[in-house]
Amino acid sequence: MSDFLDRFGRGQSMCHRWPPFAKLFAAIAMILAATCVPITHGPLVGIVACVIFFAHTLARIPLAYVGRRLLFFWPTLFLMAISLPLSQAGQKGWLLFVTILVRGTLSFSTALWLVNVMPFDQLLATLRRLRVPDVLLAILSLMYRFLFVLWDELDRMRTARSARLFRKPSLWETWRSAAHLVGRLLIRALDRADRIHGAMLARGWDGRSRWIDQSREDRP
């Protein structure tokens, strides 16, 4: 799962070698452009789209991968956008529909680019230099660490559930078992948090987070 999300984050292209700040601000600028350019100015939108496409090629992110991610993304965006003209009985709102589709697609591809040129730890380090509070970053890094652990846990619980189901459950049963799944996951997660806390205490945790200074480490 994690591999699917930022598969090319560790690549070695030109974009990957940019300083982290440049990558972050380039992405923000691109999203700003994508959301602010009036949709009726076709050429401008085209230029923004070309820049984003060019950035993807520079970062050597395969088109097939981008396409697959977009395929997962479009249905939800489409549903949201189509509800506008549908609610007007198809007579109004088509301009809004197109606007939302185009802007959503462009900003999604930009975010996808950022994920794939900037590994999460680099993003954390950049945020830290931007003076995001340490508490937030400590929680964020812990969350990122255990996100995938919990996903695997959830996967195992789902497997166990389907192994014990011999017939198609009714809608209510599905709901109840899904809610129990969440509750059980909650219990396990909190127990795990306790164990992690114990392990952290054993390693001298005193409630303050310390960070390795990456720039100093890189120096010879």
């Binding site: 909650l186 806390h197 952290m200 409630g207």
Partner: peptide, 24 residues
């Protein structure tokens, strides 16, 4: 307290994972 950070981080991860559970 020294517990808040691991607890909050785990809670965030849990909400994230919990959102993966689909309800038809």
């Amino acid at each position: 307290g020294d517990r808040t950070i691991p607890l909050t981080g785990m809670m965030a991860a849990l909400v994230f994972a919990g959102q993966m559970v689909n309800f038809p």
